[in-house]
């Protein structure tokens, strides 16, 4: 037999039997106690990782949504703030302008009043001065007249003058 020529290629029945027994034993024991839990654990872990990844993805999306919402809120808030500021400014302007206007009218009124007063005072003063001048003039005139008319001649002359002047027109 050709196979029997070299011990290297001659199958040894004893070793074959032992190898079969050992390998089958190894296979059965490993299948029960090692491969099942290991493969199950690996699958479980992989599933967990996949779950975690999908969860992370979802969280990311949620986050993005939240961020965009936040941004919108911020925008809105900013717009609101701007509106409020604008309103306040307008109000302020109005108040200022109102105040200015009222101050102006008040001032004008005051000035008017003052002018009136001044005019009144002026008129009063003028009236006083006039009356004083009248009385003084009368006094002077009296005194002058008195002096003038101490002498009869002079009186006559004057009357004449006056008569002369009066032309019976």
């Amino acid at each position: 037999m050709l196979l029997a020529l070299n011990p290297l290629v001659k199958p040894d029945p004893g070793l074959f039997i032992w190898a079969t027994v050992a390998f089958l034993l190894l296979f059965i024991l490993l299948r029960a106690f090692a491969w099942k839990p290991i493969v199950a654990a690996l699958d479980e872990r992989e599933r967990n990782i996949e779950d975690a990844l999908s969860k992370a993805e979802m969280a990311k999306q949620e986050m993005a949504k939240l961020t965009s919402e936040n941004e919108q809120l911020l925008k809105q808030a900013r717009a609101e703030r701007d509106a409020i500021l604008k309103e306040a400014k307008e109000l302020k302007d109005q108040i200022v302008s109102d105040a200015k206007k009222s101050a102006q009218t008040e001032g004008n009124k005051l000035i008017e009043k003052a002018k009136l007063e001044i005019n009144a005072q002026k008129a009063a003063a003028m009236a006083e001065v006039k009356s004083q001048v009248v009385s003084l003039s009368l006094e002077i005139a009296e005194k002058v007249l008195r002096k003038q008319f101490e002498d009869q001649g002079k009186q006559q002359a004057l009357v004449n003058d006056l008569l002369k002047e009066v032309k019976l027109n």
Partner: peptide, 12 residues
């Protein structure tokens, strides 16, 4: 190689 082994006869 294996056929060569077969041909080399009983060396061992």
């Amino acid at each position: 190689v294996v056929v060569a082994f077969l041909g080399t006869g009983n060396v061992g």
